[in-house]
């Protein structure tokens, strides 16, 4: 997955464990890789709190 997204293994690990929020371009690349909308992968914490 890291290879397909052209990022490090550490980046994928940090995103999966919630320790790093990816940039919008990377988030779109991840969504495209899975073939789903971006909201299906990432949640807006602000909305959850609201």
């Amino acid at each position: 997955m890291a290879e397909k997204l052209d990022v490090s293994r550490q980046s994928i690990n940090a995103i999966e464990t919630g320790r790093y929020d990816p940039s919008l371009p990377l988030a779109f690349r991840i969504a495209r890789l899975f073939g789903v909308p971006i909201e299906a992968i990432f949640e807006d914490d602000g909305e959850q709190r609201g």
């Binding site: 052209d6 990022v7 490090s8 550490q10 980046s11 940090a14 995103i15 790093y20 990816p22 940039s23 990377l26």
Partner: peptide, 8 residues
Amino acid sequence: EIDEFLRS
């Protein structure tokens, strides 16, 4: 050259 997470 490194990715955005490592750059951070």
